[in-house]
């Protein structure tokens, strides 16, 4: 087995080429356990020097410098990738929408921009394009002012890109924001759209020094219209992780090396 492939990569199917082509991945986290490291790891995978895949990154949470520093420690230079036209970084920190129809036109405009970029980047043959959103709850706050329907429409349109252009869509969302709601329709809709759901949460047994949390990966998949793909359909995997300075260590419960 390739040493660079860890448990999360295996759960996502990265032992095969382009496992996320045409799929939607949702990462759910909470205040106690951030899931942004999963996003960073997937960024690194997409921008791997062994592939020609491209990434469109919608940053609602942090500026470019933050991601640049984090990814540099993981061994990936974002500035170089930008220059090579493999990374399109869309800084959404300043996105503000007013009430009413402007919200609709705002997210519609954003989608059209993404669609245009996908078409431009898709000129390279055999290139898989990944659209990442960090994070959806901030998009909801920024764009809709407590009306989540426009964001769901935006998500639907992004989903069409997975069919039309075989793009991958990766989103991060904070589950605990909706914990007080009896029926968090927005969150449930996102889960329904996703093919793979990754949940980062604290250990059920409480805080520990050498284990920083646990990940649950549900590979729902969908009935495939392409033969051979999605062999890991309907798998649910659970493992723990420890965040280190230059990477993440994944292990099954009770198998920590430290």
């Amino acid at each position: 087995m390739d040493r660079s492939v860890n448990l999360l990569d295996l759960a996502l199917g990265f032992d095969e080429p382009s496992p996320l082509r045409g799929k939607v991945v949702l990462i759910e986290d909470c205040v106690e356990t951030s899931g942004s490291f999963v996003l960073h790891q997937m960024m690194k995978r997409v921008l791997s020097p062994h592939s020609s895949d491209a990434l469109i990154f919608l940053a609602f949470a942090r500026p470019f410098s933050h991601y640049d520093r984090v990814l540099r420690k993981l061994g990936c230079n974002l500035a170089t990738q930008k220059t090579n036209n493999r990374l399109v970084f869309v800084d959404m920190l300043m996105m503000k929408c007013s009430d009413g129809d402007d919200n609709v036109s705002g997210v519609a405009k954003l989608f059209r921009e993404i669609q245009g970029t996908v078409r431009k980047l898709g000129n390279v043959t055999n290139r898989n394009i990944t659209v990442m959103v960090d994070d959806m709850s901030l998009l909801e706050i920024a764009a809709t002012n407590s009306n989540s329907d426009h964001v769901l429409d935006f998500l639907h349109y992004c989903h069409t890109l997975t069919c039309e252009s075989n793009c991958s869509l990766v989103t991060l969302n904070h589950e605990d924001i909706y914990s007080s709601m009896e029926r968090p329709a927005y969150l449930l809709q996102m889960v329904c759209l996703a093919d793979i759901v990754i949940k980062a949460e604290p250990l059920a047994s409480g805080l520990a020094n050498d284990v920083h949390g646990q990940l649950t990966v549900v590979n729902k998949g969908m009935i495939s219209s392409k033969s051979g793909k999605g062999s890991s359909r309907n798998k649910l995997q659970n493992f723990q992780f420890r965040i280190k300075e230059n990477g993440i260590e994944y292990f099954y419960p009770g198998c920590s090396r430290s």
Binding site: E182, P184, L187, L188, V218, R233, N234, L236
Partner: peptide, 17 residues
């Protein structure tokens, strides 16, 4: 009931599907 609809997804374990 349906309040824990999301949690049920992660409770399915090996019986998912």
């Amino acid at each position: 009931g349906k309040r824990n609809a999301l949690e049920n997804l992660f409770l399915a374990h090996q019986d998912f599907g």
